[in-house]
């Protein structure tokens, strides 16, 4: 084994020992008194844990406020153990946390918690997403009348639609700084559109037909496929365009139908 290979192996073993339960046998390979070595290793372990918890705390401030720091810290610890980050950029860590919370037995009395977390992750992703080009309106104007129903839009990378059976936007708003945590409404099935505009993340509550329309467009449906019969989607489409949420379009022939 070359020196470089030996070093790479040692580093991999060290990394594994940082997230392992118990001694993991690594402390015996460290210099000095074994019990002291284990305590030194523990410093690194706790730093890794704290970094990961901190990343989740940063992405999920409303969840943290809802459940309290102790509960959040333990849920974060378990999530990081079960689903460790696969990217050194911890801004990308935590996409699976909503599903984890939804299935977390200790949160079973808070059935809306996973959906609140989904909204927070959408918000986080909207903030972090790359910029997308604006819609080429002149090109759109050149699309012939016969091809217009086949227009499919590409969305800005920051656009997310969160559909919930709970009043998630009301809960989210009630837990922003300066609010006391009491939502304005207790009922709702919130469909929330999240996007970034002028360097700020924005959210709007959509009525059901608009949410269905936007969801279908985001799935790649053409205008003709996305539009429900008898519902005027002009305002909904105008909102998407004015918010910079449409980044491009195609007007090609649809797949064999």
């Amino acid at each position: 084994m070359s020196g470089a290979e030996a070093l790479a192996r040692l580093q991999a073993e060290f990394a594994a020992a940082l997230v392992a339960e118990g001694d993991a046998g690594f402390a015996s390979r460290l210099a000095g008194e074994p019990s002291l070595a284990l305590r030194r290793l523990a410093i690194y372990r706790r730093a890794v844990e704290a970094n990961r918890r901190g990343a989740l705390r940063s992405a999920y401030p409303v969840v943290a406020r809802l459940v309290g720091e102790a509960f959040f810290g333990e849920a974060a610890r378990r999530f990081a153990r079960d689903c460790p980050p696969d990217d050194a950029d911890l801004n990308r860590f935590g996409g699976g946390f909503p599903a984890f919370l939804a299935a977390y037995p200790h949160a079973s009395e808070l059935p809306w918690l996973g959906d609140v977390a989904r909204l927070e992750w959408a918000w986080h992703e909207a903030l972090m997403a790359a910029d997308s080009p604006g819609l080429d309106y002149a090109a759109l104007a050149r699309v012939g009348e016969a091809a217009q129903p086949r227009v499919r839009f590409r969305f800005h990378a920051a656009v997310r639609l969160v559909r919930s059976s709970w009043p998630v936007l009301a809960i989210w708003e009630a837990n922003q700084p300066g609010r006391d945590g009491t939502p304005d409404r207790e009922e709702g099935a919130d469909d929330v559109l999240v996007w970034r505009e002028d360097e700020r993340v924005r959210a709007a509550l959509l009525a059901p037909p608009e949410a269905d329309f936007v969801a279908r467009l985001m799935e790649g449906a053409s205008l003709e496929e996305a539009a429900a019969d008898g519902w005027d989607f002009s305002a909904a489409l105008g909102h998407l365009a004015a918010g910079g949420m449409l980044a491009g379009f195609s007007a090609g022939t649809p797949a064999a139908s």
Partner: peptide, 20 residues
């Protein structure tokens, strides 16, 4: 055990929230 009990502001919503 105390780390498994949600505190924070969810007490304010408690069981009041209802899906439609």
């Amino acid at each position: 055990e105390w780390k498994y009990v949600p505190k924070g502001t969810c007490a304010k919503l408690g069981g009041k929230l209802k899906p439609p």
